[in-house]
Computed example of a mutant assay.
Amino acid sequence: MERIRVALVDDQALFRAGIRMLLESQPDLVFAGEAADGAAAVALAAQAAPDVVLMDVRMPRLDGIAATERILADAEAAGRTPPRIVVLTTFDLDENAARAIRAGASGFVLKDAEPEFLLAAIRTVHRGNAVLAATATRELFAHVGRGRGRRPAPPAWDGLTPREREIFALAARGLSNTEIAAGEFLSEATVKTHVSRILAKLGLRDRVQLVVFAYEHDLAG
């Protein structure tokens, strides 16, 4: 059994103790350490090399958004595989959650979520998928982004083929590979290949980042 190393970052000791007990009860999870603020989280990530980091948003010294950016940047600079980061937040349509996703988090989980949901989120991001569905990402960014200007698409956008742009638009609307395949009369494998190429060309990590890219560059349709 592959065991997933999970680190926890939160400034509330009682909350950390509860999550630690939950993680240690799972045979496929390893508790890789904890930190009470973002600065300590950066050091913990470098030392413990967790696969997944559960990251609170609001913390002293360095908040979860800045810590997420630092952890991912440090891993890239060191040539390490970066951990997947799941943000812990109190509100579902939260500006800070949106900022964390922009910073590279793979999604967020509400602090009052059921334990089974949190465990499923850890396993989901470890497999390389995003916790937050693309449709929910679209709703989040529509909510927090009203009144903001859009940036022009970067040069990498011009590298997409017309077919890839069509698939991009459908994925940006929150459609799954299965739904895109059915609507476009393609196999799911073909759609998956298109999506992988789109992500690679645009330098995006997952479909959540794709939706963020589409929204911020006014390409969501």
Score class of each variant (00 low, 15 high):
E2C: 12
I4L: 12
V6E: 05
D10W: 03
D10G: 07
A13Q: 07
G18L: 04
L23R: 02
E24M: 12
E24K: 11
S25K: 09
P27K: 10
P27H: 07
D28R: 09
D28H: 08
L29R: 07
G33S: 08
A35N: 08
A36K: 10
D37Y: 08
D37G: 05
A41C: 01
A41W: 05
A43K: 13
A45I: 00
A46Q: 15
A46V: 07
A48E: 10
A49C: 13
D51R: 07
V52W: 03
V53P: 09
V53F: 02
L54R: 04
M55D: 11
D56Q: 03
D56P: 02
D56K: 05
V57T: 12
M59S: 10
R61V: 15
G64I: 02
G64A: 09
A67D: 06
E69T: 13
R70T: 04
I71G: 10
L72A: 01
A73D: 13
A75D: 12
A75S: 14
E76P: 00
G79C: 08
G79K: 05
R80Q: 12
T81Y: 00
P82I: 06
I85H: 08
I85S: 04
V87E: 00
V87P: 05
V87L: 12
D92Q: 11
D92I: 02
L93K: 11
N96E: 06
N96C: 01
A97T: 11
R99Q: 09
G104I: 06
G107N: 06
F108G: 03
F108M: 03
L110A: 08
A113C: 13
A113S: 15
E116F: 00
L118W: 03
L118S: 11
A120W: 10
A120T: 14
A120P: 01
I122L: 07
T124W: 09
A130C: 11
A130M: 06
V131H: 07
L132Y: 02
A133S: 14
A134I: 01
A136S: 11
A136G: 02
R138D: 07
F141Y: 11
F141R: 00
V144S: 05
R146K: 13
R150M: 03
P154T: 05
P155K: 01
D158W: 00
G159R: 14
L160P: 09
E164T: 03
E164S: 04
A169I: 01
A169T: 13
A172F: 04
A172W: 02
R173L: 13
G174W: 06
E179C: 02
A182M: 12
E184S: 12
F185W: 09
F185E: 15
E188S: 11
E188T: 14
A189E: 15
T190M: 12
T190I: 05
V191L: 06
V191W: 00
V191M: 03
K192T: 15
T193Q: 14
V195R: 15
V195S: 09
R197T: 12
R197V: 12
L199K: 13
L202G: 11
R205H: 11
D206M: 08
R207F: 01
L210N: 09
E216G: 00
D218F: 02
D218N: 14
D218K: 11
D218C: 03
A220Y: 04
A220T: 05
